[in-house]
Design a protein around this nucleic acid. Sequence first.
DNA 1: GGGTTGACCTGTG
DNA 2: ACACAGGCCAACC
Length: 118
Amino acid sequence: MLPPAPQEIDRRIYEVVAQVPRGRVATYGEIARRAGLPRGARRVGRALRTLAGHPPIPWHRVVNAEGRIALATGSDGAQRQRRLLITEGIAFSGDRIDLRRFGWDRSLDELLWCPGDR
DNA sequence: GGGTTGACCTGTG
DNA sequence: ACACAGGCCAACC
């Protein structure tokens, strides 16, 4: 197989981002994995930056692996993102989102930790 | 052509 | 909690 053209890669990234459900967030790495780019987290960031928030793509549902907004603290973009997420019912503890509660793919902690469940 | 820079991640100490 | 290293790779000096 020929490697997909950069354009095609971006398209797949947008497709995956569009699938993140309302009220949930996904990490850059997660988006990359689902788009077929195992270590392409950085690529996802570029794709979203290029997007500049315009198309009907829920870019705000993508945060970094710590559950923090990746944009510079206090920047317009960061504030806009935070507001959008809160509007969707996502809660911040300080500047972080608890990915065990709001993460799209919560399998890891869920499977390994299993608090009082069963 | 090379060096640096990111809306990043994972592992190690 | 912090620092550092290695990986990643298109875009930009």
